[in-house]
Design a binder for these strands. Structure first.
Length: 441
DNA sequence: CGGTCCCAACGT
DNA sequence: ACGTTGGGACCG
C-alpha cells in the first residue's frame, strides 16, 4: 500500500523512460540517486491526476513534505547532482559539468596494496547517469585532453571491482591535460601514497576535483578563452534522435537567443562594472555531451597520525591548486599550496570542515620530514619525489621487457649510469627486476 | 606510474 | 555489415 513510485528530476523526465530506469536501478541496488521524491502507489492510476509526493529522500535521510511543498514538487525535483558511494571512493557528480565536483578517498598502508591491475581495465561510461549528462569515451577521443582519474587507479588495487569503478567516466574522470596528468599530477599522486607507505602517517583523507577559476577581462579585448568557442553558437536545428514531446513549447528557440548582440563599445573596453573590477569564468567543453574542461585541478589532503586507542589523532592538512596545463618539473609542490579558505571560495563547497571544527589541524607543509633524503636544511613533508626518481621508475619497467641478456645488461647499465650521474642509489626495485630477469634469460 | 591508438574478436 | 569490447603495442 505504501509501495513507492519514484519521480526523479524534471530534466530526466524529459528524456523519457526515466521512471523505468529508476526502477531498474532500485532492483539492482545500484547507486542511490542523490534525492528522490516518493508518492503513494495507490493514487497513481494511469491518466489520472498527478499524485503528490509525500516525502523527499536524500542521502541524509527522509523529509516529510508539507502539502504546499508537495504541490511545488509535484512535477519532479530537478536533480542536478548524483552521489556515488563506491567501494573505495565517494564522489558527487555534477550533471551540468558532466563530471564529479569532488572525489573523496581514504588511504591506509593496507588499502594501497593489492593485485588488481589496470591492464585490461578500460574507461567506461556511467550508465546510472541520465543520458544527456553522461560523459562518453567519444567525448574524449581526439579532444586534445586525456581522461584524468581523480581517485587514481593505483589507489584502487584492492580488488578488480574497485579498479573498474575508478575508470567510470562521470564518477571519477575529468578532462585533463595529458602532460600534466602524466608528470606533475602523477608525481602528486605518488606523493600522497607515500605519506602512508613511507612517511609514517597512519591514514590520509584525500579530496580531489576540477576547478573553474575566474579571470579578469583584459583591457584590450574580450576574454581569452571565449574566443575559440565556436560551439556557443546555436542549436539551430533539432539534434538527431532527440524527441521533443509537445513540440509547441519545446521546439528550439531562435538562434539569436543564444547569440546576444555585441556588448556596447564602452563596456567592451572596460574591465570594470560600476567602478568595480569583475571576473569572467570561461572554460572549454569537449565532445557532443559538452564535458567541461576544468581550468585548474585541486587536491586536498588531511593526514592523520594516531595517538593510540581512544585518543583523537594528530591531524595535518594541505591543499593545492594546479593549472590544467603542463607544469614544469622543477616547481616545488609548495608553489601550489593555497589556504583552505581559498580553495573553499573557488570550489564552492567546504573542505573537511568537521576536522577543523573538532581538532587542531597543523600545516602539513610546515612539518619537517625526518627521513628526508636530501636533508639539506629542512625538507618538509611536502617534498615531491624527484623527477629523476620518476625516470628511474620508468626505466625499471622497461627492464622487465628485455628480450636478451645483452639488452638486459645494456638497460641496467643505463640505469646505473643515471643513478651515478644524479647521485642517488639504484632503486631496490630495479635491482630486483634485474636479478629476476637475469635468472630467466 | 600515467596515458593513446589500433586491430581483432565478438555480438547484434 | 555494423558498433562495441578487450588485448597488445606504443609513448613519456
Amino acid at each position: 500500500m505504501l509501495q513507492k513510485v519514484a519521480l526523479v528530476g524534471a530534466g530526466t523526465l524529459l528524456g523519457g523512460g526515466a521512471v523505468a530506469l529508476y526502477f531498474r536501478s532500485q532492483q539492482q541496488q545500484a547507486r542511490p540517486a542523490s534525492a528522490v521524491l516518493s508518492v503513494p502507489h495507490s493514487s497513481a492510476p494511469s491518466g489520472a491526476a498527478v499524485p503528490l509526493p509525500h516525502t523527499l529522500v536524500t542521502p541524509a535521510g527522509r523529509t516529510f513534505l508539507s502539502p504546499r511543498h508537495a504541490e511545488l514538487l509535484k512535477y519532479g525535483l530537478p536533480n542536478a547532482t548524483q552521489l556515488q558511494l563506491k567501494q573505495n571512493y565517494v564522489s558527487l557528480i555534477d550533471f551540468r559539468l558532466r563530471e564529479p565536483l569532488w572525489v573523496l578517498e581514504h588511504l591506509t598502508k593496507e588499502n594501497v596494496r593489492g593485485d588488481a591491475d589496470r591492464a585490461n581495465v578500460g574507461f567506461t561510461q556511467d550508465n546510472d547517469v541520465p543520458k544527456p549528462y553522461r560523459a562518453s569515451n567519444d567525448d574524449y577521443a581526439k579532444s586534445g585532453y586525456s581522461r584524468g582519474h581523480m581517485a587514481p587507479a593505483s589507489n584502487n588495487k584492492t580488488s578488480i571491482d574497485a579498479m573498474r569503478e575508478s575508470f567510470l567516466l562521470s564518477s571519477n574522470i575529468v578532462p585533463q591535460d595529458l602532460d600534466n596528468n602524466m608528470f606533475y599530477w602523477n608525481r602528486m599522486e605518488r606523493w600522497v601514497r607515500q605519506l602512508v607507505t613511507k612517511k609514517g602517517f597512519d591514514a590520509v583523507h584525500i579530496m580531489s576535483g576540477p576547478l573553474f577559476l575566474p579571470s579578469r577581462l583584459s583591457a584590450d579585448g574580450p576574454v581569452i578563452d571565449a574566443a575559440n568557442s565556436t560551439d556557443v553558437v546555436p542549436h539551430s536545428s533539432t539534434p538527431a534522435g532527440a524527441s521533443y514531446q509537445g513540440t509547441a513549447i519545446l521546439a528550439p528557440p531562435p538562434a539569436d537567443v543564444f547569440t546576444p548582440p555585441p556588448s556596447a563599445p564602452s563596456s567592451r573596453q572596460s574591465t570594470m562594472i560600476a567602478g568595480k573590477p569583475f571576473g569572467f569564468v570561461s572554460y572549454k567543453t569537449i565532445g557532443d555531451s559538452h564535458v567541461a574542461v576544468p581550468t585548474h585541478l585541486f587536491k586536498a589532503v588531511l593526514a592523520e597520525k594516531s595517538n593510540g586507542d581512544g585518543k583523537p589523532p594528530t591531524t595535518f592538512f594541505a591543499a593545492f591548486i594546479v593549472p590544467n596545463t603542463p607544469v614544469a618539473d622543477h616547481l616545488p609542490l609548495k608553489a601550489f599550496q593555497v589556504p583552505r579558505e581559498t580553495l573553499e571560495r573557488y570550489a564552492g563547497f567546504q573542505v573537511y570542515d568537521r576536522a577543523f571544527q573538532m581538532l587542531p589541524v597543523m600545516d602539513l607543509c610546515a612539518v619537517q620530514d625526518p627521513a628526508a633524503k636530501n636533508s639539506r636544511e629542512g625538507a618538509t613533508m611536502c617534498q615531491l619525489e624527484n623527477a629523476t626518481e620518476f625516470k628511474l621508475f620508468t626505466m625499471e619497467r622497461d627492464l622487465g621487457k628485455a628480450r636478451s641478456r645483452d639488452q638486459l645488461e645494456k638497460m641496467y647499465g643505463q640505469i646505473q649510469a643515471l643513478a651515478v650521474k644524479e647521485g642517488v642509489a639504484v632503486p631496490e626495485a630495479a635491482k630486483a627486476t634485474y636479478e629476476a630477469k637475469s635468472r630467466q634469460l
